[in-house]
């Protein structure tokens, strides 16, 4: 899956990545919008920027995200 700017996503699981931090547990199940995907080469391993509804904007690993809606 490559994510694109503006896509609506859900944090549907905990990431296995080392960059997952404790406070991110709270984000589980939340919805948001991809605001800055990897803009150089769609690297599935890059951390990408997601803006969560009511919870601010964060850089997250991609394995915890899935596209929802359209």
């Amino acid at each position: 899956m490559t994510f694109r700017q503006g896509q609506k996503v859900e944090i549907y699981r905990r990431s296995d990545d080392e960059s997952w931090e404790d406070y991110m547990e709270e984000f589980m199940g939340m919805h948001g919008i991809i605001t800055d995907p990897d803009t150089s080469k769609n690297d599935p391993d890059a951390l990408i920027e997601v803006s969560l509804d009511e919870k601010g904007t964060h850089r997250l690993p991609q394995d915890c995200l899935r596209v929802i809606g359209q």
């Binding site: 605001t35 920027e49 803006s51 509804d53 009511e54 919870k55 601010g56 904007t57």
Partner: peptide
């Protein structure tokens, strides 16, 4: 973020710099 009168707008929440 529980006090309704003090909740920042979504744009402010989304701004990484707040």
């Amino acid at each position: 973020g529980h006090c309704p009168m003090l909740t920042p707008a979504p744009c402010q929440m989304a701004c990484p710099a707040g």
